[in-house]
Design a protein around this nucleic acid. Sequence first.
DNA 1: CTCATTGTCCAAAATTTTTTGAACTAATGA
DNA 2: TCATTAGTTCAAAAAATTTTGGACAATGAG
Lengths: 115, 115
Amino acid sequence: MKEDTYLPYPQTAEISLCDVLAALGDELRLAIVGQLAVEPLGLVCGEFNCLTSKTNLTYHVAKLREAGVVHVQPEGTRRRLFLRVDDLQSRFPGLLDSIVKEAAAARQAAVEAGG
Amino acid sequence: MKEDTYLPYPQTAEISLCDVLAALGDELRLAIVGQLAVEPLGLVCGEFNCLTSKTNLTYHVAKLREAGVVHVQPEGTRRRLFLRVDDLQSRFPGLLDSIVKEAAAARQAAVEAGG
DNA sequence: CTCATTGTCCAAAATTTTTTGAACTAATGA
DNA sequence: TCATTAGTTCAAAAAATTTTGGACAATGAG
């Protein structure tokens, strides 16, 4: 596992709205973003509550990273993900907020329904 | 062409964030929404500046309608589309605003670049 | 060093989405 | 009535996305 010169992600100005929307238009990835939003210290791949294989998670994380939604920081053998909150807010003001708010509401509703 | 009992679309409360994001995560559909946003009287399919076949447009319009992004009103042999601005604003406050703002900025930039 | 843990990479398989074309319906206008 | 316009439907083809599995690399613990 190389420690750098990889995990490319777009600079703030290059983030494409369409790519971001496409990246978030998937249940698994939207759930990841929902979890990340309440974790200012980021999360490591293994910490996501998602029922999928490591291989597949790698794939979805790459989608989020390539779209500019998350930043991935190698940490030993792990990968810590951070939501690019400030970058997204400056690029598309209000967008992430509204999405995260709804994601939180949805999770709350799920808990109340006894999930 | 039947005049009613078709063109089903989700009620406001049923609109899924993920479906909306997936619907907008496509260049053609995002462009349609961008155009609709500045047309309070809606637009008829033929009025979109999109280089695609009628058949394909039917397909993409259905995606937007099924996701709850647009309302489609039969008007004789035409179909007039309206952005569901209020429904989306009440369901996901701020979301559409931020998207439309960016879509407008992108079109402006395209014009200035001499498109 | 050796093992277990984390996650990557690659290629194939499975699935979904998008595009196409031909045939068709409904409304409109001459 | 007949032709034109606007859009739909269906099925097939094409393309893109997602999922899987096997082999692998790097780190950290013992």
